[in-house]
Nucleic acid binder design. Structure first.
Length: 413
DNA sequence: TCTGGGGTCCTAGGACCC
DNA sequence: TCTGGGGTCCTAGGACCC
């Protein structure tokens, strides 16, 4: 088989770069990318973590996901700006739109990462990568790293080398020199837990892992051991696919602004999550066979409970009622800081085939769809349950990002 | 006012069936 | 009531990614 040429395009400090580009275009003098800065959640709502950091912020040891409190301890002069998800989706779409012109085989991996199969591209791959990078910089106002390799894994590893605004290759003959010296936690799929496990047995670099006996890793870490051994040796053969894989689950979760200590408030949060998650499952025309709820208490321990239902559901009420039952079984009375509802084992919502077309359900179904339509047309707050008034709890939680308009961000549109 | 939210996949134990 | 083992389903938890 001939060698594939796979690109991995990764927006540098995506949220922060996009925020900076937007602000510069709107006359702001300071470029967030050039000072210690982060995009962060709202601390008043207990969402105070770092979502993206500038390179100067990184030099203070600030990491994505850490609390703003700790980030400020590392850098007291840190600039913190709030997130604008609507803007980031537009920036992401603009990047994908530009890249689509280079290959029909393109896969969105996340909001800021794209795989592109350039095996049949009509230019020299280095020239093509350079053109993409420069066009994104000039036309969209932010920089990307591009990793080039014979498969998705190596392309992705390559894009993570020196940043920003760089192109790197990682072909098989380069693995030993470019990838094996890196610390083992730099390998895709080796996170904090696995790093500790591997380090405790003297495996410190990706090269150490690659040179382990495959059978030893398999018996120790099962399937996962085989996976990371393969990765350490550059073995991976998944295709770049532009059709996204079928959705397996839909969930919404929320950290409440205050600890919830009463059943009444807990039920309100569950109702709020039920509204959102059920709107989303109806939007994709699915029903769920399994409902899972989980709670995290004020000591940061999480517990979950799930139930498989005889009949797949998509109605707000059914999901809410199931969540309440699960919650009553799960909750021991301690203060709660986070709630989540997840729907899984999805199936088609073809109700005729599901043979559950009884009268009650039909009425409920009509009501749900009517409310969905109104909310889509007039906004999520156009229909709100009165029980949320003065509760301090949002009537709909998570999921739906309201389309904000950024009409003057000309170069993105 | 220290610690978000959205996903995927894997494992292990128990129930239940043959 | 001394004891098997394979297979599947369900559930809870944990790992990873962005």
């Amino acid at each position: 088989m001939e060698q594939r040429i796979i690109f991995h395009i990764d927006a540098n400090s995506a949220f922060l770069s996009w925020e900076a580009a937007y602000r510069i275009q709107h006359g702001e003098k300071i470029d967030l990318r050039e000072i210690p800065s982060v995009v962060g959640g709202d601390e008043k709502k207990r969402h105070g973590i770092v979502l993206a950091k500038s390179i100067p912020a990184k030099k203070y040891g600030i990491k994505t996901g850490e609390s703003l409190y700790s980030a400020r301890n590392k850098c007291p002069s840190l600039t913190v700006v709030p997130a604008r998800h609507g803007l980031y989706i537009k920036c992401s779409n603009a990047m994908v739109g530009l890249l689509k012109k280079y290959s029909p085989l393109i896969q969105r991996y996340s909001i800021d990462e794209v795989f592109l199969d350039y095996t049949y591209g009509n230019k020299n791959y280095m020239a093509a990568a350079n053109e993409m990078k420069e066009r994104i910089k000039k036309e969209l106002g932010f920089t990307v790293n591009i990793g080039i390799g014979p498969n998705k894994l190596l392309a992705k590893m390559a894009s993570d080398f020196k940043k920003p605004d760089m192109i790197h290759t990682l072909f098989y003959h380069e693995i030993e020199k470019k990838m094996w010296p890196l610390p083992v936690e730099d390998l895709f799929m080796v996170g904090y837990r696995t790093k500790s496990k591997l380090n405790s047995r003297g495996i410190l670099t990706i090269g150490d892992l690659a040179r382990q006996d495959k059978k030893y890793l398999c018996s120790w870490l099962k399937k996962y051991g085989l996976l990371i051994w393969n990765y350490a040796n550059g073995i991976e053969d998944s295709q770049v696919r532009n059709d996204s894989l079928p959705l397996k689950s839909i969930g919404n979760s929320t950290t409440t602004p205050f600890d919830v200590e009463t059943k009444k408030e807990a039920y309100l949060v569950l109702l709020s999550l039920s509204e959102t998650v059920s709107m989303r499952i109806r939007e994709v025309e699915k029903c769920a066979r399994v409902v899972t709820i989980s709670i995290r208490n004020n000591e940061f321990y999480s517990f979950s409970h799930q139930r498989k239902l005889n009949t797949p559901i998509d109605s707000t009420n059914c999901i809410y009622e199931t969540s309440k039952e699960l919650f009553d079984e799960l909750w021991k009375g301690e203060p709660i800081r986070r709630f989540s509802i997840e729907l899984s084992q999805l199936c088609s919502n073809d109700f005729c085939q599901l043979s559950i077309f009884d009268l009650v359900y039909e009425k409920e179904r009509k009501l749900d769809r009517t409310i969905d339509k109104i909310r889509n047309k007039y906004g999520c707050d156009s229909v709100v349950r009165s029980c949320f008034l003065y509760s301090g709890i949002k009537p709909l939680t998570g999921g739906v990002i309201m389309e904000e308009e950024y009409p003057t961000m000309s170069s993105l549109l």
